[in-house]
Design a protein around this nucleic acid. Structure first.
Lengths: 193, 193
DNA sequence: TACCGTTGTGTACAGTTGTTCACTTATGTG
DNA sequence: CACATAAGTGAACAACTGTACACAACGGTA
């Protein structure tokens, strides 16, 4: 799994990886692959599971560090970006998988995102930051937030990890996107659709 | 190019396509490939160009059909969805390319999206629908709109093209996302960041 | 009609791929 | 220690890959 991730981190697309290639990178004979996975799809699914862990760690850190509500978005986006930097390959895999070859991997990642959005909704409820929104409208908002951040991932992975200027631009832009969404949510009234 | 697109439409990922595979699908001998393209990346780039045409057609139709501002979003999302249905393979290619293997293709698609966002900003200015926003804030809003729609693409491509119920759900959800963004834009004041 | 540039063909080759099988080696538990 | 299970090995296979080359059919223009 590390080998596959490494290759993805080097810019290869997961869908184009072969068994021999992965085992070569892992420094192991091709047949060893079958001791652990049935095929590449299987490996992909297990990577999705590990990705889930990465996302949960990120969520936990965000929850711990965002105590006062006013800096909520800046801090969260910052944490997001630093986790992406620290687990670049994983997030490459995630970005690729969203439109990937394997339906199962695709669905796995999508469901991680859904989970993330629902946890976010819980937190906002708990912090009483969304009292005027119905459950459905809060879900809508959180879904949009997660999508926006997920799309920023594409930007982030497109620039070199030490191009601090560009990363800062992405950070600011993403933060403003979220502010825009929350301003929308603050003035949202259910009936208006 | 049609052959490659067909394979992508069948669920294959562009990055995993080979020259022989594509020529086989095209009903042509492998060597013929080199009469038209230097390699698969080259083919991808030419597909991006054609994708540009598809997007421009879509934009034109949206401009013609959205005369009264009140139904702007419903109509636009509808047009978007019908174009996706009519050019499914192209949009598969686009969704894949955003996190694809070839940096050039990736940048090409991204620049199509930027163009799209800037045209959208022009239109909104022209229709005087965004008079209270600075140019920068209007750009921000339009960028977010385009991203949101682009992400919906992933949802749309994930469901069967004749699953009318699910498509309708996506249509409604995407529309509401856009409404949320525009409510945000309407109440946005530059200073608040 | 003769000609030329474009597209397509057939053959060839060396390298890579996924998968199989019988085998050795490592690892941790009773 | 002995032993069962897990992990890794090496050789072999047929199938497939990208690419090269010399040659043939096509289409339009002079």
């Amino acid at each position: 799994m590390n080998a596959a991730l490494t290759l993805v981190g080097k810019g290869r697309h997961f869908a184009s990886l072969g068994i021999r290639e992965v085992t070569r990178q892992a420094g192991v004979v091709p047949t060893s692959f079958y001791r652990h996975f049935r095929n590449m799809d299987d490996l992909g699914l297990q990577l999705v599971d590990e990705l889930g862990l990465v996302l949960r760690r990120m969520m936990r850190e965000a929850r711990n560090n965002v105590l006062q509500a006013d800096k909520l978005m800046e801090e969260s986006v910052g944490i997001f970006i630093s986790h992406v930097q620290a687990n670049r390959s994983f997030f490459f895999f995630m970005a690729q998988g969203l439109a990937g070859e394997s339906r199962a991997v695709q669905e796995g990642i999508r469901s991680e995102l859904r989970f993330f959005a629902s946890e976010l909704a819980n937190d906002l409820r708990r912090l009483r930051l969304a009292d005027h929104l119905s459950d459905a409208d809060l879900d809508l908002t959180c879904d949009l937030v997660v999508r926006t951040v997920a799309f920023s991932l594409t930007d982030l992975l497109g620039v070199s990890p030490d191009d601090d200027y560009q990363i800062e631009q992405i950070r600011k832009r993403t933060t403003r996107f979220l502010q825009l969404v929350f301003v929308g949510a603050a003035h949202w009234q259910s009936g208006e659709a």
